[in-house]
Design a protein around this nucleic acid. Structure first.
Length: 415
DNA sequence: AAAATGCTCAACCGCCTTGAG
DNA sequence: ACTCAAGGCGGTTGAGCATTT
């Protein structure tokens, strides 16, 4: 544990990489892939530790890296994502194809932080500095009174301040999705708010001491699903996750009541969506945003690992040949986690026709008329694995279409 | 011109998580 | 259940360059 063992090895080079070293590493990975990083230095003839090779490749040598300065759009998105995710640089980097977490982190520390400060915004909380100072005074007062034995502190001021700021601060990326109101796509704003309620206060962002609230958690889930390529496609209402009208006896449907959205704890009107995610003549989707949905196929395919999780609970149908053995999900996990599964499972984001049963195996299949009409790769009779293969082939197109549809719909409904 | 200061960014450090044995 | 290697991540450092004094 702790320090990587390779670092103890003697005579390993440190510091900047020479062009010769770069060339060796590129040649090796181009020919053989990286495989086990710890074996790369030896195989490539480098006096470096595997970790160093990995870092060099990921942060500098990878062919899909975008070079050059960050655009204003990228900076804006980083700010928005940071507001939601905190210092989760790797997660932020996922949303910026061709950019590394290191690069983003450096930009944040060297430039964005300063800019926000100049605009009177606290870079940690994304609130106006005056507001932050006000809260700090209240906290100081509270801690002083606490240490002096007085324990009755009225926090109403700070609570209301926080509440107001949530309505006034620039909307986060997640908030955009929360704005999706009732529409022909059967997707209700209550759904998202319900999700928010059910994912609230699930974890803590330790690195930034910023609580990962329901927004953050949900965003991460959504993010995961986005990368899988399908998540935004015809988001369903809860009743449509498993089509009750499908009378195929082999189909395993949930008997668990999904979380109710009717009693949403959120009553304030949704904030305005972030402009950089809206698609209109005034705010067209940028090439960058397009690229976001054209992430490299490897990453997307990797994200299909969620299928293994989706195969095993009582609430989710088996995907059969996708993963028959599956991995067990802890019994202690609640419906919150099931929502994670729904969010992370693009197969569940179909429309009413989404779930059918495989004609021979009886396993459920993901199938939508809409997709079929849009994508000639789907043919009748293909099995589950082929369906996944279809997604692997078409996820980029499908996700992009879905993204555009959702953006257009949201914008039209909202403004 | 030279020293001081500021800035950028590649790379390292150390911790955490995961999975194999 | 435990150990350990490996990968991943966020925080930090420091070399090199740019700008200011």
């Amino acid at each position: 544990m702790g320090r990587h063992s390779c670092c103890y090895k003697q005579k390993l080079r440190k510091g900047l990489w020479s062009p010769e070293e770069d060339e060796k590493l590129i040649n090796h990975i181009t020919k053989f892939g990286h495989g086990c990083w710890s074996s790369v230095p030896k195989l490539a003839g480098l006096q470096r530790c595997g970790k160093s090779c990995r870092l060099r490749w990921i942060n500098y040598l990878r062919p899909d890296l975008k070079r050059g300065a960050f655009s204003q759009e990228e900076e804006n998105l980083i700010i928005e994502l940071h507001e939601v995710l905190g210092n989760k640089w790797s997660q932020i980097a996922v949303q910026l194809p061709g950019r590394t977490d290191n690069e983003i982190k450096n930009l944040w520390n060297s430039s964005i932080k300063k800019k926000l400060g100049q605009r009177g915004i606290d870079p940690n909380t994304h609130k106006p500095l005056s507001e932050v100072e006000k809260e700090e005074k209240i906290n100081d007062k509270a801690s002083q009174e606490s240490s002096s034995g007085l324990n009755f502190v009225d926090h109403s001021e700070s609570i209301s301040t926080t509440s107001n700021s949530n309505q006034n601060h620039p909307p986060s990326t997640l908030e955009f999705f929360l704005n999706k109101s009732n529409s022909s796509s059967n997707f209700h704003v209550q759904d998202y708010y319900g999700l928010y309620a059910n994912t609230k206060e699930t974890t803590t962002n330790t690195s930034s001491n910023k609580p990962l609230d329901g927004y953050s958690t949900f965003f991460q889930q959504l993010n995961y699903a986005q990368n899988a390529g399908i998540a935004l496609m015809n988001p369903p209402t809860s009743s449509l996750f498993f089509n009750p009208t499908n009378n195929n006896s082999n189909m395993t449907t949930t008997t668990t009541t999904l979380p109710s959205f009717s009693n949403s704890i959120i009553s304030s009107p949704p904030p305005k969506p972030p402009l950089n995610l809206l698609h209109s003549s005034e705010n067209p989707i940028t090439s960058y945003e397009m690229n976001k949905f054209h992430n490299n196929a490897t990453d997307m395919q990797n994200n299909y690992s969620f299928l293994e999780n989706a195969t095993t609970t009582n609430t989710i149908s088996s995907w059969g040949s996708v993963s028959d053995s599956g991995k067990s999900i802890k019994q202690t996990e609640t419906e919150d986690i099931r929502w994670n599964e729904y969010l992370q499972t693009p197969f569940l984001f179909g429309n009413n026709n989404a779930i059918q049963s495989h004609p021979t195996s009886g396993q459920n299949m993901y199938r939508t008329a809409e997709i079929k009409s849009e994508n000639p790769f789907i043919v009748e009779g293909e099995n589950s694995l082929n369906t996944i293969s279809f997604h692997q082939q078409n996820q980029q197109e499908v996700s992009l279409q879905a993204f555009q549809r959702l953006q257009a719909a949201t914008y039209a409904e909202y403004y």
